[in-house]
């Protein structure tokens, strides 16, 4: 079984701050991490490998520094890693990104057939959840999004049975491989690599592919040229025109405060009073 796991290196958004005056992102010192959702995809691929044997290849499209994210994946137990990196990819939207990643996977398939592609549910920066479906369509793989459980894999018959989170319930789906799975969060727990893995990861010869190596001739399909969406502006959320009306009473007795608030609330919003009375 050969699984390809797509991962993205993202800024740790919990630590991103916005400059109060210029409204620009202050990236300095913000650590880059593996998109947390992608770890569920990687762990699931590793579990299939534990069960059926085979190979797990991790790929990412990104700047040279994304190598660190790939090494981390190797230390968790991935067998091989490819960094797809070229200035020509800069400015790619999801359509261009899925094009570049699908070309890369086609190239991988020239050496070894791929049974499953895994992606995360979405990223924490772009947050579109569009890249997985995009890759599946371009490669004509069966698309299985929001998978909460891989129930069964029949490697002989090339069949796979999964549970997929849908609106209002869970779909039990049967399909054949090759297929692309976007893994739901919280579905498994990432393993810790052992010392051997760590050692192997640090010495592993990572592949770095530029545009040509990834087999992409059509430059108009990647980067800004290949991206139909264009950002026209970036801005801070506007504050409401009015700050909150502060409820203060001089003796600051909580009871008086509450009564004052209620009086104000119900005078200014009489409908709300009816609404609450109706249900209480």
């Amino acid at each position: 079984m050969h699984s390809v796991v797509c991962i993205k290196q993202v800024p740790d958004s919990a630590q991103i701050r916005v400059h109060p005056v210029t409204n620009t992102i202050m990236r300095q010192g913000v650590p880059a991490i593996i998109n947390p959702y992608d770890l569920f995809a990687l762990e699931e691929a590793l579990r299939l490998k534990d069960k059926f044997g085979g190979t797990v290849t991790v790929i990412t499209m990104g700047p040279p520094m994304a190598e660190a994210a790939l090494r981390k994946c190797l230390s968790f137990g991935a067998d091989d890693a490819i960094l797809v990196s070229d200035r020509a990819f800069a400015g790619s939207d999801t359509l261009a990104t899925s094009y570049a990643l699908s070309a890369t996977i086609r190239k991988i398939m020239e050496d070894m057939p791929v049974d499953l592609i895994f992606t995360g549910k979405q990223t924490i920066d772009g947050d579109t959840a569009q890249v997985g479906p995009g890759i599946a369509k371009r490669l004509d793989f069966q698309l299985l999004t929001y998978v909460s459980k891989i129930v069964d894999v029949d490697t002989e018959k090339k069949e796979i049975l999964v549970e997929r989170r849908a609106e209002g319930g869970v779909q039990l789906l049967k399909t054949s491989t090759p297929s692309l799975i976007t893994m739901l969060e919280g579905t498994n727990e990432m393993r810790f690599g052992d010392l051997d893995d760590l050692f192997r990861a640090s010495r592993h010869e990572l592949k770095v592919w530029n545009r040509e190596a990834a087999g992409i001739d059509a430059v108009e399909m990647i980067g800004l040229k290949g991206s139909p969406t264009v950002v026209s502006k970036v801005f801070a959320p506007r504050p409401r025109s009015k700050r909150a009306e502060m409820i203060e009473v001089h003796d600051s007795e909580p009871k008086n405060l509450a009564v004052t608030l209620l009086a104000k609330l119900f005078t200014q919003h009489p409908k709300l009073e009816q609404e609450i009375a109706k249900r209480a």
Partner: peptide
């Protein structure tokens, strides 16, 4: 965008 700290306007 960026975990919600900013907004961006996008056109096709």
């Amino acid at each position: 965008t960026f975990g919600g700290s900013l907004l961006c306007t996008i056109m096709t």
